[in-house]
Structures are given as structure tokens and as C-alpha cells.
Amino acid sequence: MIPAAFAYVRPSTVEEALQAIAAGGEDVKILAGGQSLIPVMRLRLAAPETIVDLTKVSELRGVREDGDSLVIGAMTTHHDICTDPLIAQYGKLIAEATETVADPAVRHRGTFGGALAHADPAGDLPAVALALDAEFVIAGAGGARRTVGAADFFVDYLTTAIEDGELLVEIRVPKLGSDWGVRYEKFNRVAQAWSIVAVAAAVRREGSRITEARIGLTNMGSTPIRARAVEAALVGADVSMETVTGAAAQAAEGTEPSSDLNAQADYRQHLARVLTRRAVTAAAGL
């Protein structure tokens, strides 16, 4: 299929990008890796007036340390993430989830920031970002920057806190040290498919006790969801199959997942419980 005609701008700095967005007219779309945007344009489900292509904005690409945080440029590709040494050391949950994204071709073009800004609840990275309480650094007109926490960033289906005229520039996530165990448990029918349900789990242990737990759910609602009840049940508990299974049984509490060809809602809720048990079991080193 062929997209409808559009204007195309390819800036090389964030400043130029913001100007291009401001000047782009009523319906501006930002092109990061294009792995979601291009298909919907080709199907003519989207027909933006202007495309602002960020692929030449080199300052948006790469991973760096800042104290206790990792700072990931919005245009860092999935492949970059999977091969980055800082991510390998402090961001294992991100790496594990990113390795499950689609296929190698998509991972070479698709970007970390693009996937988060697209905010598809079936995407793998929003639930990870939510579980990690990531902070989203957003640049606005004139270059002013604001930071939004993950809990406020994901507003609704395909909708984030990024306003018109703004640009996601980087994502800050806490470094997880060696006392953390992580697992991204993804359930889909074929390797390249979206998650039917997935669970991102990060668990910090002191001895036999769980001291912190962060559980994010993929595709269990219109946004990524924290399994707060599971987290609460895990913290302070002794690590055992019984405690993990008991906690995981609460994984679907409060969720309202959709029904589609792959799964009806009740089955998704069942999967959330099973996958949470498996994810936490693995993350806790059981």
C-alpha cells in the first residue's frame, strides 16, 4: 500500500526538530524507527500532513550513566540496547524485553523512545518502563524540558503525556545492581508477534527475603499496568514457590484486558497470573 502524500523534514538537532514540529501544520507525526508509523500510513489509517524524521538527530542516540541512573536516548535502536554494555550491566530487564521485540530487521530500525511514545499496550517496553518507574524527559517549544514519571506518562491506548509540539528526548531508568533478579516473561504464538500478555518482573532479594518487587503487565489494559497487589504481597516475604504462587494469584486484580482473536479477557487474566508466577519465580532465582 502507498501512503497518502505528506511533507517530510529531516532535522539534525533537537532544536531543529522542535522547530520542524512547530512549523509542520495541524497533523505532525514524528518518525523514529518507523516500525509502527509506516505500516499505519501504508494502510492509510494515518495520513499526517508532515513527517519529522529523527534518524539524523545523533544527540538522541546512545546510553550513558548519570549517578544511579541510566539515560537512554530516545532514538537508541532496539539493537543498540541489546548490545550496549551499560544496559547489559544495569538494565538486564530492558535487554531481556527488547530481545523479544519482533524480529532482527525491526530491532535494527525500531527505537526505544519510539516504542514508548507509541504506547501500544501490547508493546514490550512500556510495561518495563513502568515497572522501573522510568522518567521521561520531554522537550517542548523553545527547548524547555520537563520530566514525567512513567505512572503519568502512559495516559491511554496509544496516548502519552507528550503534548503537541513536544518531543521525547531521553528516558532515565534506575540502575539495577547485582542484588536484583529480573525476568521478562512473554507469551505469544509466534516469535515475531506482539505479546498476548507479558510480565516484566524485577525482584531484589536480601538473603531469603524479597525486599523490593516491581511487576509490570503488558497488554492487560489500555496502558501498561503495575501489578501492585503482587508487589505488596511479595515484599517482606520469604522466597518460596508458595509465596510466589500466592502473590501471583493477584496479578489480574483490577485489570480490564481486551478480547481479540488471540485471547478473550478471562484467558488474558489467567495468563497474567501464570506468567507472573513464572516471571517472579525466575527473577527471584527459584
Partner: peptide, 16 residues
């Protein structure tokens, strides 16, 4: 036809 793209009309790859 609700399986009008390869997202919904599922084909396996060598991985599967």
C-alpha cells in the same frame, strides 16, 4: 475479513 494483515493472519517463521 478480520485477519486482513499478517499481524492477524499468523504465519510461522523458522523460529517457530
Amino acid at each position: 475479513l478480520t485477519t486482513g494483515t499478517f499481524v492477524d493472519y499468523l504465519l510461522p517463521s523458522a523460529m517457530d
